[in-house]
Amino acid sequence: MSASSATHAVARAAPPVRTGRVFVAFVARDLRVVFRKQPTAFLTRVLVEPLTRIFVFSYVLPSVSGRGQQPGGSSFSTVLAPGMLATSMLFAGVLGVAMPMIGELTYPKTVQDRLLTPAPVWAVGAARAVSGAVQALVSVLLVLPIVMFVHAPGQAPDIHVANWPLLAVVVLFGSVLSGVIGLWLGTAIQPAHVSALFGLVMMPAMMLGCVYYPWASLAAIPWLHMLVLLNPVMYLSEGLRAVLTPGAAHLPLWAVLLALVGGSAVVGALSLRSFRRAAMD
């Protein structure tokens, strides 16, 4: 090649760019990376863990113990299904945002190639949270057939949707919540503490998220009953119970929606602040 071929016009006044357009490009970039360039990584991340867990809890355990009935009369798989969907969503959104974010914020800060665009700084973080929410949504769709069809004979979960719009609202805000939690963790955590993120935050949250039992049944352990009110996984599990398996005990919907919508707003604001602090020198 010759240098004189580096032809191009210089120093035209660049046209103004609308934030919405840049935002869409940010999200498009993330989704291309996750779904088109690294689909196997995504599928392994969202499928393997729920598949194993559901297989053990809904198939192996009922088969070996011969017990499938919960005190409330509903089968264990009915209690487990919404809980599994909730953990899958949170896993997908949180990991899908936090892990790449931590990488892009450590030197060299590769996130700078988006910070240098004509968009406000918050838009870079918000777009990443949105792409996390999309990953959470997709993970629900992928895990749903697993919870429906992987179970011991005669122990199918009793799922029926009475109110589709309400289901959409719960799933939507659950997804957003998982995206913003991911952004918060991904920007507030030092890279050296990533393993602590799993051990100290993710594992307890998942195990104590009322995944295997309804929140109401925790009344037997009053202190835990109150403590898990701080756990976002619990609200999503109970929310999905309310809209997918109304037969099982669950939190009142108003409480779920308040927690999911309010939590999304509060954690969203915190995460954008935290993103700004981590991204700018």
Partner: peptide, 30 residues
């Protein structure tokens, strides 16, 4: 909107190919 920076630290988008790096640079500018 009016500037470009070539970093000392080679901050490229590591998940994207060479072409995609340029392609998305254009899309970020509308």
């Amino acid at each position: 909107r009016r500037i470009s920076l070539v970093h000392q630290s080679n901050a490229v988008d590591r998940e994207l190919s060479v072409r995609e790096n340029l392609e998305f640079r254009g899309r970020y500018w509308g």
